[in-house]
Design a protein around this nucleic acid. Structure first.
Lengths: 81, 81, 81, 81
DNA sequence: ACGTTTGCGCTTTAGC
DNA sequence: GCTAAAGCGCAAACGT
């Protein structure tokens, strides 16, 4: 088999792997929607839930960001991190 | 246990389920990036790969429609297609 | 002149207006680069400057976001904003 | 006035100049969005307009190169171009 | 000069 | 169908 064909085969495998992963990703997005729907049918306010989840995610991110900022400052001051 | 506590507990479970699913979704996004990186290190052009994946996902008719519209506009502007 | 030609002319004008604005936008981006370069040649640390600018922008955005969050809470509680 | 104060003042000026330029840049971005909105309300397809602007900005050679690469990959995968 | 990494802007998606 | 948010892609910027 020629080198070109080997390459084509390899390219095809890469693309199929990505397409599979994307499919799974879409599946998870649907699952998430499903849980929200279930919560709603149990009387919970979806908008408020989203706010809570967003805030919890922000807390984590902010914490990570603070660390990064600190490192930048330390570097700027010529200190070891 | 009071009704309020039951509700709070249930709400917590819903939110944790969603956060877990979102975490998995992020994991898959990372996996996808990893495959692209691997393909790149094997000499493939990532941008072109993305184009191909996009085209394959697109419905054949939608694609033809979009191209027709583009040609119409290009002609209207006196540009080469 | 036919209606098609009028449309083509109008389309052309829209596109040219956008292209002009984008050109100006690129010019401003260059100006910004220039100021950073000037500051650097005066001995300032560019990375630290970027951090400061980012923080100042974040402060403003966070303030706006806090307001938005408050509104969400108020709505969730059935209160008037 | 001490040297440190001069430096601080100078740094402040640099930062303010950059913030002003960034503000203007954001203003232009808004203007562009406005023109797209106007075009849309006149019945034009925004997505296609974006494609045209992109193509016009692209160098003719680069464009031909990319298309050739896409065709190569598509053929390798046994897909129709 | 090149490759990696970060930040910005666009595109797409989800909800109203 | 439109508006708002999130995720993704690209391009510039930094370090090697």
């Amino acid at each position: 088999m020629s080198r070109a064909n080997v390459s084509a085969e390899q390219l095809k495998l890469f693309i199929e792997r990505i397409e599979t992963l994307e499919e799974e990703k879409r599946g998870l997005a649907d699952d998430i929607k499903g849980v929200f729907a279930e919560a709603k049918s149990n009387g919970y306010d979806v908008k408020t839930m989203r706010t809570i989840i967003k805030l919890r995610r922000m807390d984590r991110n902010d914490r990570a960001e603070q660390e990064a900022l600190l490192e930048t400052y330390m570097s700027a001051l010529g200190l070891e991190v």
